[in-house]
């Protein structure tokens, strides 16, 4: 997401520049005119004072020219700061929306639980004025482990360096909740856990499945890049290079592309 703003920065710079490139061109013309004038003066009479005058005017123009280009540089800086602020606001808003969505999900789950608990009582009691609408097929009254808990336990294991436990935990989570918002993350963390254990062939297969199973996930550039790093770590140089070049080509604005370019450069391969 961050990277998508890059072209905008350029656009910005161009628009900001539109005013000053005109100025610069005009100044350049003026300098040229003055130079001609000066050359003429020199040829005819050596009017010292006049030469001095023109001389000074040229100097002023040149300085203005330089200054306007310097101003342009700092104007771009200012604009960049403004874009960053805007992005920060967006991220904060997204965070709040996410939190609210989470609360909604939790609320919904609580409601379903409540419904499930009310349901069995209903047929027995004759005075059922309040009919609780059954929310679809009622699952078991007592839910099995909350999928979020499974995910969190696996992540806790990852943080503690218990990579085997983390891998099996994330696998359980994906089996239980294949359509969860966190499924792509879980798949990525399995790959990263394998990578941490230096089980590179397994990691390659796992990162591959992140890319094929969740092609629109924000973890895709990372998975692709670490697939490439895995190849390089087991000395499959050609495969590794192809992977890194693929990252640069497919996700040119992701931070991962910069990392891929750096590694390619270390391997003696230039990228545009």
């Amino acid at each position: 997401m961050r990277s998508r703003f890059l072209p905008l920065v350029t656009l910005f710079a161009l628009l900001g520049g539109c005013a000053s490139t005109g100025d610069v061109a005009r100044l350049q013309n003026q300098v040229a005119e003055l130079q001609e004038e000066l050359a003429g003066l020199k040829r005819t009479t050596a009017a010292k004072e006049e030469v001095q005058n023109v001389n000074q005017r040229i100097a002023e123009q040149t300085e203005q020219l330089l200054r306007s280009s310097a101003t342009l540089v700092s104007k771009v800086d200012q604009m960049e700061e403004r874009i960053q602020n805007t992005q920060g606001t967006i991220e904060q808003t997204n965070y709040r929306i996410d939190r609210m969505a989470q609360q909604m999900t939790q609320f919904q789950r609580d409601l379903e639980l409540l419904g499930a608990r009310v349901q069995p009582a209903a047929p027995g009691s004759p005075s059922s004025e309040i009919t609780v609408p059954a929310p679809g097929p009622v699952v078991s009254a007592v839910p099995s482990e909350n999928p979020v808990d499974v995910y969190q336990a696996a992540y806790r294991d990852y943080q503690r360096g218990n990579f085997d436990l983390a891998i099996s935990g994330f696998r359980d989570f994906i089996t239980q909740s294949p359509n969860s918002d966190l499924a792509d993350n879980a798949a990525y963390w399995i790959g990263e856990s394998l990578f941490s254990q230096q089980k590179y062939p397994e990691a390659i297969a796992q990162f591959d499945s992140v890319v094929t199973q969740y092609p629109r996930s924000d973890k895709v550039p990372g998975a692709l890049l670490k697939k490439g790093f895995s190849y390089l770590n087991i000395n499959e140089r050609a495969q590794g290079i192809v992977q890194l070049q693929y990252v640069v080509h497919e996700h040119p604005n992701a931070p991962e592309a910069a990392l891929a370019r750096q590694r390619l450069r270390q391997l003696g391969i230039e990228t545009r």
Binding site: Q84, Q92, Q159, G161
Partner: peptide, 25 residues
Amino acid sequence: NGRQISFTSGRSGTPQIYVMDAEGT
């Protein structure tokens, strides 16, 4: 576990905390 790096970045306009894998991904 040596696998993650937290850091501060001003990319959102104010200094905020980010986390990345040890490879920068």
